[in-house]
């Protein structure tokens, strides 16, 4: 049901197989008491063991074991209905798998209270959704501020300006999100995912709806931002165009 491909061992296997040694940021992260800090730092960013999810009695996802190391960029590849989004939802704590464990940065995402899951997601994970959904009635800046506040961080306009500038959309800070083009909304969605410097970024079908040129641009932005913040990146897609950009892949 699944196949794990990795060209190298250890922390290697970053973007295009290159090691991403940039930063191991622990900003805005609360550490679980169950593992010593030194051990947590050595642990993979994402550990999945014996994961199985059933829907109406049918197994829709099965991942016996999968690790993603810190700073790696990984691809979850599979056709529609193969369970990619379910896997990302389970990693993000938005869905509870039927069986198995998931650890993010050494902390359990499964078997914990919903409130703890929400807190862990807000502080550790940046999400880029398939539909690039933004809150249309407020400005781009306010969209990013909301992400900061929900992560328990104080509003930091300097950081917002920095991220928007990195993505080349500094001029859009005051624009209402509903007025943006698809390409602009894509950049804002990436900005929102990285603004809190999360150690793990999950992206669900970020390129599927884009033409080749825009697909390339969006992927480049995502990889660049992950690298710039030292984040681990997991991209779920059925888009074979980007397959070769990731040395580490999980095929469902």
């Amino acid at each position: 049901m699944w196949r794990h491909e990795s060209p190298g061992e250890g922390p290697a296997g970053g973007i295009d197989g290159k090691t991403n040694g940039a930063g191991r940021r622990q900003d805005a992260v609360t550490h679980s008491p169950d593992l010593p800090e030194a051990v947590r730092d050595q642990a993979p960013m994402l550990e999945i063991r014996g994961l199985r999810h059933q829907y109406e009695g049918r197994t829709v996802l099965s991942v016996p074991s999968w690790d993603v190391l810190r700073g790696e960029a990984s691809l979850v590849l599979g056709p529609s209905g193969s369970g990619k989004s379910t896997l990302l939802n389970a990693i993000a704590g938005l869905a509870t798998p039927t069986e198995g464990t998931i650890r993010v940065a050494g902390e359990a995402m499964t078997g914990i209270a919903p409130a703890a899951r929400d807190a862990l997601r807000a502080s550790r994970i940046g999400l880029v959704l398939q539909t690039l959904h933004l809150i249309g009635v407020v400005t781009v800046r306010e969209n990013l501020r909301i992400a900061q506040r929900l992560a328990g961080l104080p509003p930091d306009d300097a950081r917002i300006d920095e991220v928007l500038a990195n993505l080349g959309i500094a001029n859009l800070a005051g624009a209402k999100a509903r007025q943006l083009s698809v390409g602009e909304a894509q950049r804002v969605a990436i900005a929102r995912a990285v603004v809190n410097r999360p150690p793990l970024i999950l992206a669900d079908e970020p390129t599927s709806a884009l033409d080749d040129a825009n697909c390339e641009k969006a992927l480049a932005l995502l990889l660049d931002q992950a690298q710039a913040t030292g984040a681990t990146l997991v991209v779920a897609t059925h888009d074979n165009r980007i397959r070769e950009r990731f040395a580490k892949r999980l095929e469902l």
């Binding site: 993000a92 938005l94 929400d118 997601r121 807000a122 999400l127 809150i135 929900l150």
Partner: peptide
Amino acid sequence: ALLRTLGAR
């Protein structure tokens, strides 16, 4: 739903 993904309770 988006607010929930961003960590809203």
